[in-house]
Nucleic acid binder design. Structure first.
Length: 584
DNA sequence: GCCGTTTTCGGCCCGACTGTTTTCAGTCG
């Protein structure tokens, strides 16, 4: 491979390749292509997006992508073409046939490929602006298959789109989910009420809430649901299904099913889509039909009241919701090799927290006591280092003062230990932001990127490797430095980072702040597979944020992590031994 | 476009709701 090809291959990320494949699928759909062909492209996009390794690097290394599930010769070649050149001839040809802007119209609720095609052919609509103008001038409602309501709905959804936020962070969704479930459970006749969907699978952001409810005959649950106080707008309502938009923009879909269908409905609405399709296919092979009402052999329902009963029918053990992504969990389940996922109660301590010494809002003593009250046996104080001036980062003198303060506090505390740490900036060249002799006095050194996020892949990777070469380095904090919906992850070769961490006896962090959740699920699984222990931390800046660890645990479960994979699931003695090895 | 101890051709997961339809297509999840 030439140096040029190498440089190009490093530029096209898996996410970009996936986006190009989705774009092809959109264009094909508007073109009226075979729906199963469209699905093949969407499936390929998902597979590439979830790939634990850099797709461009795999292509450059001559690996055969056709071995991936759902990807054959044709798609493998297209993926390689996109990964190595940034685009595909097929996509360019398709955009030549129909205006590329049409695909953005697919994102408008209520408009699918057929209607978009019709609007384009009859009225020449290609952009959202064209569409709004056509609707306003009343040219849409006379088209065959369209009507006055469709025209109104188009206008309304264009309007709503303007200030709409596509997805929500977990705490926001959690707040609504908890309150709604309490409300639903208090309605007469309601037996079960649970949130399914991506929320239950523990995704880092949530697009809507899928709620499954069972209730006695005659329960007013549907009327009460659409009358819920936080409802801003009713979208649709039937006898078993309704959709509302809550204030703040979160959509809630409610499904009412019989008690005998509860487990099947939970399975069905928990998804993911790809996982559900795979399971239904397994059912088919056994002569079973699986839907939200149960598992059926002919007309007879053979399972459905509980999720376990549905799993049993297709010969699977129970698969935790966080794993249901069709990323190998079904094969693992069949082989009896499902991970025993880490739980919050497995955590013995927290290895990343801040105090008023820098940008935290609670004092050293307050944070320590709050952590102990959570049941922890240790807590590492890791305030910022001097370069992070906005956070009043610690210089050597102030850090030494904090070390003394921690020693004094530890002398008082019983059955709990405050570990002396720092969240030290990794400088642009990979050096650490504090002198070696000061770092050597700490129990652990957590290194983090807070600047120069835009470095090219090679430089960024070298920067992290060099930081880990420092004899005091313990844990790489929030490795990608991303902020959900705000800042993209840095471009690094994470395989090499993990390989180096393992060789150096270092660890990687899964930061539980809802806006970070960094590592991603895919990176967490890579760490597990590489044999690098993960620190699930709160990165707390206040007492309540010590609870962030629960978001981290959810993400860790999505990454297949078990208790043995988690650094801070170790008792203090074992933790100290592991840290000493790195401080060596 | 993918895939195969029923198939290398002919299948491909399944149902609710809406709006435009007098029996159903399109959209959504």
């Amino acid at each position: 491979m030439s140096a040029n090809a190498a440089a190009r291959s490093a530029r096209v990320s898996g996410a970009e390749v996936a986006a190009a494949l989705e774009n092809i699928a959109d264009l094909l759909e508007i073109d009226g292509a075979n729906p199963f062909r469209v699905r093949a492209y969407r499936n390929a996009a998902r597979v590439v997006r979830d790939l634990p390794r850099d797709v461009a690097a795999m292509c450059a290394a001559g690996e055969d992508l056709a071995e991936l599930p759902g990807i054959g010769r044709d798609l493998a070649d297209k993926i390689a073409e996109i990964a190595l050149t940034g685009d595909s001839a097929m996509r360019r040809e398709l955009t030549g046939q129909s205006p590329p802007a049409l695909t953005t119209l697919l994102r408008l609720p209520g408009l699918g490929p057929k209607k978009i095609r019709a609007l384009h052919d009859a009225l020449g609509v290609t952009t959202t602006e064209d569409l709004a103008a056509a609707a306003k001038s009343g040219r849409i409602h006379d088209l065959p298959g369209f009507g006055a309501k469709t025209e109104q709905r188009i206008l309304a959804s264009i309007e709503a789109r303007r200030d709409e936020q596509a997805r929500f962070l977990r705490p926001f969704a959690e707040l609504h989910a908890d309150a709604l479930l309490r409300y639903l459970q208090a309605i007469p006749g309601v037996v079960h009420a649970a949130v399914a969907g991506s929320y239950r699978r523990g995704l880092e952001t949530v697009g809507d809430l899928d709620v499954v409810v069972t209730a006695a005959e005659g329960s007013p649950v549907m009327e009460r649901f659409v009358a819920y106080g936080a409802v801003e707008r009713l979208d649709s309502q039937g006898s078993t299904r309704a959709t509302v938009i809550l204030r703040g923009g979160l959509q809630v879909d409610l499904r009412l099913v019989d008690e005998a269908s509860y487990g099947a409905a939970l399975c069905y609405f928990t998804g993911s889509k790809a996982y559900s399709i795979a399971v239904r296919k397994m059912g088919q092979e056994r002569g079973l039909r699986i839907n939200e009402y149960g598992v059926f052999r002919g007309e007879e329902r053979v399972a459905g009241a509980t999720e376990e009963s549905v799993f049993r029918c297709v010969g699977l053990p129970y698969i935790p919701p966080e794993l249901r992504e069709d990323r190998g969990e079904i094969a693992a389940a069949l082989a009896g090799r499902l991970p025993l996922l880490v739980e919050r109660r497995d955590l013995r301590g927290d290895l990343h927290a801040h105090t008023t010494a820098t940008d935290g809002r609670a004092t050293l003593r307050e944070v320590a006591e709050a952590a102990r009250a959570l049941g922890h046996t240790y807590l590492a104080i890791t305030d910022h280092s001097r370069r992070l001036t906005v956070a009043r980062g610690l210089d050597p003198d102030r850090l030494l003062e904090q070390i003394d303060a921690i020693d004094r506090l530890n002398a008082e505390l019983r059955g709990f230990v405050v570990l002396k740490g720092i969240e030290v900036d990794i400088l642009e060249d990979g050096r650490l932001d504090l002198p070696d002799d000061v770092l050597a006095r700490l129990d652990l050194v957590v290194g983090a990127l807070h600047s120069a996020f835009g470095l090219a892949r090679e430089a960024q990777t070298t920067r992290l490797l060099r930081a880990m070469d420092h004899r005091c380095f313990s844990i790489l904090a929030h490795p990608s430095a991303r902020l959900l919906q705000a800042r993209s992850p840095v471009d690094v070769d994470f395989d090499r980072v993990l390989e180096h961490a393992r060789a150096r006896g270092c660890f990687v962090e899964l930061d539980g702040q809802p806006v970070r959740l960094d590592m991603s699920d895919v990176h967490a699984k890579m760490a597990r597979d590489a044999g690098v222990l993960v620190s699930i931390s709160s990165d707390a800046h206040s007492l309540s944020e010590l609870g962030n660890q629960r978001y981290g645990v959810t993400q860790a479960r999505r990454g297949w992590l078990e208790r043995k994979d988690v650094l801070n699931a170790r008792p203090l003695g074992a933790l100290r031994a592991l840290l000493r090895k790195t401080m060596g």
